[in-house]
């Protein structure tokens, strides 16, 4: 009997050592997943894809019925805003043309704002809700790569954490992870730069930290990506400011940002690739990538 007990104890100890080693291995910043991981992800991704079609069909139908109830009210509101929209559209068109002209004059062709989108569908979400991650049905074969920005029609939702041949994993902005940072700008007369890091999931607000203390930030001003991290395009909408607090030493401010997208209701996303390449490898620093 003591013999068996010892064997079991040994097994337990060995597995704890393996556990710690594995956790250490997976916490490390990795360029690429190992091939067994890629294989597993692709296989389950395929199965998820098969199930996703009927499920999304049904939910789409139910959602459609719900929408139908609100159609009348919505229509009223939208009609009221239609004139405003026409005016805005002509203004935007005008500005775009002017911008192009000026760019031509300057012979400056690259633009941090330019990007090409890859459309994809969400086929799964991490059920253990500690790491907020989504699985999407486009992978390396479609041009998705690690660290690309992921947006919906409403704004930025996160970045690609890892990509396999046919699927990719998206880490949402709301995910609590020290490595999850995005360089951002608060728009206004006086532009303020800072980093989006952290999420208050009780109030559903993003935290934008490291804003210099002397910047005056107005409530309701919009926050967009700065494009200075090296990977994200400039001008992707993140949200708007609802509250500003000075941090504990009084050197920086933290803004609380209401995200423009609902992180809990994402079905279709676009992975965006910036057309201007990043800065040289050694200088692209802490912002988004690491």
């Amino acid at each position: 009997m003591p013999q068996i007990f010892n064997k079991k104890l040994l097994l337990l100890l060995v597995s704890i050592i393996v556990l710690v080693a594995l956790i250490g291995f997976s916490l490390k910043e990795r360029e690429e997943l190992t091939w067994p991981e890629q294989f597993l992800k692709d296989t389950t991704g395929w199965v998820g894809n098969v199930f996703n079609k009927p499920v999304s069909g049904i939910t789409g139908f139910v959602g459609g019925l719900k929408d139908l109830q609100h159609t009348y009210d919505e229509n009223k509101k939208l009609k009221a805003r239609l004139d405003e929209y026409v005016l805005l559209k002509t203004q935007v068109q005008d500005l775009k043309e002017e911008n192009e002209d000026l760019r031509d004059n300057l012979k400056k062709e690259d633009d941090l704002r330019k990007y090409s989108p890859i459309q994809s569908t969400v086929i799964g979400r991490n059920p253990d809700r500690w790491h907020e991650m989504l699985t999407i049905n486009k992978g390396k074969r479609n041009g998705v790569e690690k660290n690309m920005a992921v947006i919906t029609s409403n704004g930025l939702v996160g970045k690609v954490k890892s990509a396999t041949d046919f699927t990719a994993t998206v880490q949402l902005l709301s995910s609590i992870d020290k490595a999850n940072r995005v360089s951002a700008i608060v728009q206004g007369d006086d532009k303020a730069y800072g980093l989006i890091e952290g999420f208050d999931d009780k109030k559903n607000l993003l935290l934008m930290k490291r804003i210099p203390y002397d910047k005056k930030i107005k409530k309701d001003s919009t926050v967009i990506t700065s494009g200075y991290g090296g990977i994200f395009p400039k001008g992707l909408l993140i949200g708007k400011v609802v509250d500003v607090k000075v941090d504990q030493y009084g050197l920086n401010q933290t803004a609380y940002i209401e995200p423009s997208t609902d992180f809990y209701d994402i079905n279709n996303v676009m992975v965006v690739q910036r057309e201007v390449g990043g800065v040289a490898k050694e200088s692209d620093g802490e912002d988004e990538a690491e």
Binding site: I16, V18, L19, E37, T44, N126, P127, H131, T169
Partner: peptide
């Protein structure tokens, strides 16, 4: 193990 690889990306926790 599959759960760790596919969903959480922290290997070992559920597997153990």
């Amino acid at each position: 193990l599959t759960y760790d690889v596919v969903y959480t990306e922290i290997l070992g926790v559920y597997m153990f």
